[in-house]
Design a protein around this nucleic acid. Structure first.
Lengths: 198, 198
DNA sequence: GTCTATAGTCCGATAGAC
DNA sequence: GTCTATCGGACTATAGAC
């Protein structure tokens, strides 16, 4: 039908993951990825602003999922639980394909440049969640910290999940991590009403 | 006396900050920085692995400060407070020069590539703190989460501090942020002794 | 210190979809 | 005709190799 094979973007993503696994991120040029995907290097850079971005193309969708889950969470839920609702919604999407997540995580962990990009995406997720919480009327500082805490629970829970050979549900790991986060702050010492910790 | 002016590294750092402020990070080449610092481009790359790194040369020292503070914290302190001790020790160092921190923060915020690097340094700080906590016998998950929480308190408190024209002590802002973080987790619901939150 | 590969940008040209 | 996706070539800066 057309001059081009469809789904150039998907082919580039798959080619990149394969090549990064085979010979590593730095040993793979943008041209290599393009070649294997059957496009030119120039086309690669029109789809992805830089070489790293090819592994992070789904991140806008993740942000939308978080924002929507926070928007539609029950009104009476405490802010931190609202934020956790957001990241658990993301977990539900990733749940299905542990193999892909694990493979991708291994590639990212192996390269500092990719870790940097991942951290930027997580930071952007924190910002998205903060905004969604504030839209619910949560005060700015609480919103920011609840978002940070939820993303930490996601990040740490996800890291444990992908490291496992025969894992439970990702949502379970995240809930466990959130429980451990809550347990960090001993209620007995300083959470008595009105007392200001220094 | 010698063929070279002393403190080439310091001159490059200052030249970089000036140029990044004047014309922005991307509009400044490594050669520009080297030239203003009176060295060759080659010398620049011998001191800094990449262009961004010139703004992050103090990060190893920060890591050592955190690790040492955690190592020497009172034995009976809860893990999260030990971790907070670490980041407060860093605050004491930055305390003196609000102007420099604010200027640097503005440069970093203005450029995604620099934000990425900053996030990587913060992640590495989390790892350092986690290691130091584990060396005290804290279990791995608690150590990781306490480190994350402390660095979040630092990060958010620092961001508020640099944004202020006539700020209080950075340590105060961080303590406030930590208190707000603690307040996120309502004690009433699930922190009763022996009860396991799900 | 020189040389080189790669990343990433800018310009324009082209070919199909609508 | 308009919109969008591809391709080609030239170009600079980064960063590493020699």
């Amino acid at each position: 039908m057309s001059r081009w094979q469809p789904d150039a973007r998907g082919r580039m993503v798959r080619a990149a993951m394969d090549l990064f696994t085979e010979r590593g991120f730095e040993q793979t040029t943008a041209g290599d990825i393009a070649e294997r995907a059957g496009v030119t290097e120039r086309t690669f850079f029109r789809h992805f602003t830089d070489k790293r971005e090819v592994l992070f193309s789904g991140s806008e969708a993740v942000g939308r999922t978080v924002a929507e889950a926070i928007r539609s969470a029950p009104a009476d839920l405490p802010p931190v639980d609202v934020a956790l609702t957001g990241v658990v919604a993301v977990a539900r999407v990733l749940e299905d394909d542990h193999g892909h997540s694990a493979r991708r995580a291994r590639i990212v962990e192996a390269n500092p440049a990719l870790r940097e990009r991942e951290l930027l995406k997580l930071a952007s997720l924190v910002e998205t969640a903060t905004g969604a919480l504030r839209a619910r009327g949560v005060d700015p500082l609480t919103a920011d910290l609840a978002a940070h805490s939820a993303v930490t629970a996601f990040q740490v829970g996800f890291a444990r999940w992908v490291a496992e050979a025969d894992p439970p549900a990702l949502g379970t790991r995240i809930a466990e991590t959130a429980a451990a986060l809550r347990a960090l702050w001993p209620a007995a010492e300083s959470a008595a009403p009105g007392r200001q910790p220094r």
